[in-house]
């Protein structure tokens, strides 16, 4: 296979990966951030202690985290069909990717929020700030470097998951590597795909590190 033959394939696959990862990152943040906040706020000694609720959320998150992604993807096929009407294509892959990444990201959010000093939260309480204000103006901004670091790890994990998910019809770089490299013995294309993946992951990690470092003014 020549470069001219590979380029369009790579280009298309990269676009699919970007779509899958982009959308699932968006939905992961949308659901995972509030879930992570809930894990901290409802905890014993949190802003609104509801230990029973926190325990339930904790179990749900742990179940989500302990399922291998490939199992999760198959197990939630009915749910995927319910949400997007199909189990094939990029949109259908976004559902299991999101479901798989939300518990992961929520734990990272929880860890980042726990890094915020108790004294800062208490200072805000002493000023008469409401719980919503404390979450919005103290916890989240103070934890921002940690949240960015957590998001970076999540995006990288999503790229990995998306390679797996792609084989079920979502396309993308992982799928390309498997279809051409493994099934058609196009070793060169497989190597190029892997290199592209490595470069993308490197770029995202470095970008995340730079942003997190610039935000962390300690």
């Amino acid at each position: 296979m020549t470069w001219d033959e590979m380029a369009p394939l790579l280009w298309e696959a990269a676009g699919q990966t970007a779509q899958m990862v982009g959308w699932s990152t968006l939905f992961t943040v949308l659901f995972g951030l509030p879930l992570g906040v809930a894990l901290v706020v409802f905890d014993r000694g949190g802003l609104l202690p509801l230990p029973a609720l926190k325990a339930v959320l904790g179990v749900v998150v742990n179940v989500g985290r302990s399922l291998p992604f490939i199992v999760l993807m198959i197990a939630i096929i009915p749910f995927t069909r319910l949400v997007v009407g199909t189990t094939l294509g990029t949109a259908a892959v976004v559902v299991p990717l999101t479901v798989g990444a939300v518990p992961f990201f929520a734990r990272l959010v929880e860890a980042a929020l726990r890094e915020v000093g108790a004294d800062v939260v208490q200072a805000a309480q002493a000023m008469g700030a409401s719980r919503t204000t404390i979450v919005g103006k103290v916890l989240l901004p103070e934890a921002l470097p940690g949240l960015v670091a957590g998001l970076t790890v999540t995006v990288v994990a999503l790229i990995g998951y998306s390679a797996m998910a792609g084989t079920v019809g979502g396309g993308g770089l992982g799928d390309l590597a498997v279809r051409y490299g493994y099934q058609r013995f196009e070793t060169l294309l497989m190597i190029v795909t892997v290199v592209v993946l490595v470069v993308i992951v490197q770029l995202i990690q470095s970008l995340g590190d730079v942003v997190a470092r610039r935000l962390a003014r300690k």
Binding site: G117, D119, V120, Q122, A123, M127, G128, P141, E142
Partner: peptide, 17 residues
């Protein structure tokens, strides 16, 4: 009522953000 009571802390408790 708390808004009329100021408080200062041993480790300052400033927002680094």
């Amino acid at each position: 009522a708390r808004r009329r009571i100021g408080m200062i802390h041993q480790h300052f408790a400033l927002l680094s953000s």
